[in-house]
């Protein structure tokens, strides 16, 4: 599945673990149920899928060893993953990749980024230019976020990165 970062397509060096198959030694994203198995590997980078109804505190202990957390949008109007991403940054100070997977719209891109999401999995036929446009639609935002954008010097308003 194509992967977007900063509005551009990037190569995805990660593989999702296959059901019933060993994790191997490469960069692999595991379901939460296989997290301990992943942590037990002696080599290879590790990522995990955080189910949308799971608290981020589940990952508290493992987080220093994780490079990627995937948050899930079962449907674009289910906004729980926005809170999960923001909380991973704000409460657990996670600095790795947060990847949005599932049903998301270009119109949500800025919101995702401002909640701390770094990469987005988009459908095979996605119009990448619409995503890039959406990311730079607005020059200011009306409230602070975990991205700590530059204040405009007035109220809570923030300049968004160009």
């Amino acid at each position: 599945m194509p992967l977007l970062e900063n509005g551009h397509l990037v190569a995805d060096r990660w593989n999702y673990a296959t059901n019933g198959q060993p994790l191997g030694t490469g960069s692999v994203i595991v379901p939460l149920s296989r997290l301990s198995e992943g942590l037990g590997r002696s080599m290879g980078d590790l990522g995990v899928v955080l189910p949308v109804d799971e608290s981020i505190s589940t990952l508290r202990d493992a987080l220093p060893k994780l490079s990627v957390v995937v948050v899930i949008f079962p449907i674009f109007r289910d906004g729980r993953a926005f809170s999960q991403a923001r909380a991973l940054r704000e409460h657990l100070h996670f600095t790795g990749e947060i990847r949005a997977s599932g049903h998301v719209l270009p119109d949500q891109y800025e919101f995702l980024v401002r909640c701390g999401v770094t990469t987005v999995e988009v459908p095979e036929n996605a119009d990448v230019s619409a995503w890039e446009r959406a990311l730079h639609q607005f020059r200011v935002a009306m409230q602070p976020s975990v991205m700590n954008e530059t204040p405009t010097g007035f109220g809570f308003r923030r300049f968004l990165p160009a």
Binding site: D78, G79, R86, L112, C115, A141, M142, Q143, S145, G155
Partner: peptide, 16 residues
């Protein structure tokens, strides 16, 4: 007004 601004296109609370 402060609450209006804060809540306008809030990144986390637009799909409640």
């Amino acid at each position: 007004e402060i609450l209006r601004q804060w809540s306008t296109l809030h990144p986390e609370f637009t799909f409640l």
